[in-house]
Design a protein around this nucleic acid. Structure first.
Length: 441
RNA sequence: GUGGUUGUAGCUCAGCUGGUUAGAGUAGUGGUUUGUGGUUCCAUUGGUCGGGGGUUCGAAUCCCCUCAUCCACCCCA
């Protein structure tokens, strides 16, 4: 029976030429992370479901990929729940693992679990895929890579500044123009509280976040629906129009937020800007928050992050604050692709193909391969005995720049006919000269 | 979860208002006197026209359902 070759929704294959380009991006990110003294870690793709749930808000919980228990999982379920077809309760009984939704929550778990072996402040980076059961669309996939750098156990705001510098440096190296936006959850929370939205802070912050999309008037309308008085409504309007922190009311929370903001204002990179309407949906942020968007191509945010004070507390260790940023690889890729910013010379192929006409030729060529590879030249021999044009076509399709022809003539003279696949030029060289030629071209 | 779009050969698509054995390009394979590709020419493989049901003498084409896809909303990288 023939089954249809297909992938699950929102997941993709990558061709060799795609992988080279993805690695070009991650390599730059990795280098900058290491320059700033972050160390790589790895964690499993699966976490216990109770590690993941409740960290990303209600929406986030819905978007978790859950993994079915092994074995005869149905035999252990409650009959009543099974009969009632209650998916949520049943899920809890048949699934105890899930795919990670981001790299931050697993980090919190990791830090608590491995605290004895880590030195704090712990600066780590992690480049790996995450999964969200979202509906795919442009720039949104169900499997995508995040590239994270976080500092755990340091409340210094220099960390925030460094992280913004990392954003600036990486995107500069990628030749992309971006705008780094920052804000502070304390400002947002304090503001909501001071305008009479105690208990409804999250709701109020979510409205702010829509400013870009629906405009100021509609934002104010939505606040009106929350029964704000006129004084507070006009205050909000003014704040959003001017983005001016000095207009903020006074409260303990707000003063704290303003102080933190002032620090960032002082040390921030040139392309970073305070934005009062920046909110970010992830539930765990408590201090500074960041988001990066391309100024050249519309695709949503290509990076985000912030400070989280209570994430390790959920795993039983308090007083361990963290701050981090994330790069979204596929969106950065899409921007690079759309703007044609990948270097021309990225090539996944070898430099040389050895072609031949007989088994004797192959024997001879295969031995030469060893010397070529010992010299560090990426080389391959066409493995099968096929017609000559077909071997050339292979080199051509794979974008291999040079072909060395090994026929009886060449064997007798101990030479290789080196052909430049672009110009068609051919020259006869001994093995030593072949190697030195390829090394210098 | 809501709204829209599109589903025809491995890939990109054409098939007009329903009418004979469903086409093209490209890729694949075989040849073009067997040591020169990208750039000759010829031949050839490959499709239950997303799936199911209905209307009709007759459906890729019309209607209904369903699945998938892409896009937008929600939210996010």
């Amino acid at each position: 029976m023939k089954i249809k070759a297909a992938l699950p929704k929102g997941m993709r294959d990558f061709l060799p030429k795609d992988v080279v380009r993805r690695q070009y991006i991650t390599q730059i990110i990795r280098e900058v992370f290491e320059l700033y003294a972050y160390q790589a870690i790895e964690t499993p793709v699966m976490e216990n479901l109770n590690t993941l749930t409740g960290k990303y808000g209600e929406e986030g919980d819905k978007l978790l990929f859950k993994v079915l228990n092994s074995g005869d999982y149905l035999s252990k379920t409650d009959d009543q729940i099974l009969q009632a077809k209650d998916s949520r309760k049943l899920t809890a009984q048949i699934s105890e693992k899930g795919l990670r939704y981001d790299l931050t929550v697993p980090l919190a778990r990791y830090v608590v679990q491995n605290q004895n072996d880590l030195s704090f402040p712990f600066k780590r980076y992690h480049i790996a895929p995450v999964w969200r059961a979202d509906r795919p669309q442009k720039g949104r996939y169900r499997e995508f890579y995040q590239c994270d750098a976080d500092v755990i156990g340091s409340e210094s705001l220099y960390n925030e500044v460094e992280l913004m510098q990392i954003y600036a440096k990486v995107f500069a190296k990628l030749n992309l123009e971006v705008k780094i936006k920052y804000n502070n959850r304390k400002i947002l929370l304090g503001l909501m509280q001071s305008i009479g939205l105690e208990g409804k802070e999250t709701e109020g912050i979510a409205i702010l976040d829509k400013l870009d999309k629906i405009g100021l008037d509609k934002v104010i309308e939505e606040y009106k629906a929350l029964e704000l008085n006129d004084a507070n409504l006009s205050l909000l309007r003014k704040l959003l129009e001017t983005n001016d922190v000095s207009l903020l009311p006074t409260s303990d929370m707000l003063e704290l937020g303003k102080k933190e903001l002032a620090f960032l204002d002082k040390f921030k990179p040139e392309n970073a800007f305070f934005d009062l309407s920046l909110a970010r949906g992830l539930d765990y942020y408590t201090g500074c928050i960041f988001e990066v968007a391309s100024t050249e191509y519309e695709i949503g945010s290509i990076g985000g992050g912030g400070r989280y004070d209570n994430l390790t507390e959920m795993f039983g260790k308090s007083d361990l604050t963290g701050v981090g940023i994330s790069f979204g690889l596929e969106r950065i890729y899409d921007v690079m692709e759309a703007l044609n910013r990948f270097p021309e010379n990225l090539n996944a192929s070898s430099k040389l193909l050895l072609v031949h006409f007989s088994e004797a030729n192959q024997n001879y060529a295969f031995q030469a391969l060893n010397s070529l590879r010992d010299a560090g030249i990426h080389a391959e021999m066409y493995p099968d005995l096929v017609k000559f044009p077909k071997q050339l076509k292979y080199a051509n399709d794979k974008n291999i720049p040079y072909v060395a022809i090994v026929g009886d003539k060449e064997m007798e003279q101990g030479l290789f006919a080196l052909k430049n696949m672009e110009t068609g030029e051919q020259q006869e060289l001994g093995l030593d000269r072949l190697i030195s030629f390829l090394k210098s071209h």
